[in-house]
């Protein structure tokens, strides 16, 4: 009898090696295409120049200040958006009348492309960090809001009845049932929420500011400095990957009670 063979993926180190190979392949291709002038280095930069610029930015320390600003804006947008989203999510889920009345408006505001708000926020809050934070908050808020709303609504009625039978007061129900249920939804959207917080920060900076990664990219673009633009994008990418890894660690810690399937979503990080 032939043994059935299940197609299996190679081991982790092999996969990692392949992933690194793809990265190197990409840079090589870029290098070859620009070195042979098939792609103009003026419009496409060259990988060596981009790496060199990135390195010198980090070495001289200029970039740290801008990174710090973007990080601060991202963190503030994320924190404020999440707290507001949780508060409103709970309120709406527990007050059906409020949720029914506000439903069309919530949907309408959420459907609005947030970029158009950036100039308004700049007008109201100035060119400092708060206009960027506000933009990030409008993005993060809705993600968290909808997830908390769902999380509270989807609490299993049996778990709820059981907690009540065990003597849980309303305060206990909030702390031991509604909150953990809602938080599990919030954390499963953490990657998206953090990503959007940063989109808000960078887009805000890009459209008008005096500091931050978005500002750096915008400045480089203004003088047709493609190497500067790509270098900015590279830093941004590294920044995102690091933040995403941190989020994954936090998520694993806080959602350790969840079945394994939930963790497969980390693969996209």
């Amino acid at each position: 009898m032939a043994v059935a063979r299940v197609k299996r993926l190679p081991s982790r180190p092999v996969i990692l090696l392949l992933q690194v190979a793809v990265l190197i392949g990409f840079f090589l291709l870029w290098h070859v295409l620009t070195a042979t002038k098939i792609l103009s280095p003026f419009f496409f930069g060259t990988p060596l120049a981009v790496l060199e610029r990135t390195w010198s930015d980090f070495a001289s320390g200029v970039i740290w200040y801008h990174l710090g600003i973007t990080l601060l804006e991202t963190a503030l947008a994320f924190a404020i958006g999440t707290v507001a989203g949780i508060a409103f999510g709970f309120w709406f889920a527990r007050a059906p009348l409020v949720s029914v009345v506000f439903d069309p408006y919530i949907k309408a505001v959420n459907a609005l492309p947030r970029v158009v708000l950036a100039p308004i926020f700049a007008l109201w809050l100035g060119l400092g960090i708060w206009s960027k934070v506000a933009l990030g908050v409008t993005l993060v808020f809705f993600i968290v809001f909808f997830n908390v709303y769902q999380g509270v609504k989807e609490v299993s009625p049996v778990v709820l009845a059981n907690a009540k039978m065990l003597g849980a007061s309303n305060r206990h129900l909030f702390r031991h049932v509604y909150l953990p249920s809602a938080l599990s939804w919030v954390f499963s959207s953490l990657h998206t929420a953090v990503g959007f917080a940063m989109v808000g920060a960078v887009v805000g900076e890009y459209l008008g500011s005096a500091a931050g990664l978005g500002y750096r990219i915008h400045q480089a673009e203004g003088v047709f400095d493609t190497v500067g633009v790509f270098s900015g994008m590279l830093v941004l990418t590294i920044f995102v990957v690091v933040i995403d890894a941190v989020v994954t660690v936090i998520e694993k810690r806080l959602l350790h009670w969840r079945p394994q399937e939930a963790q497969t979503t980390n693969a996209q990080g």
């Binding site: 299993s156 049996v158 778990v159 009845a161 059981n162 907690a163 065990l166 003597g167 849980a168 007061s169 206990h172 031991h176 049932v177 953990p180 249920s181 599990s184 009670w257 969840r258």
Partner: peptide, 22 residues
């Protein structure tokens, strides 16, 4: 209950302790 009514975010011990905590 007939269906599973344990709080999935609490360990077995925490689930058993819940009633006392309440």
């Amino acid at each position: 209950f007939q269906a599973d009514a344990l709080m999935p975010w609490k360990s077995a011990l925490e689930n058993v302790a819940a009633g006392l905590e309440f």
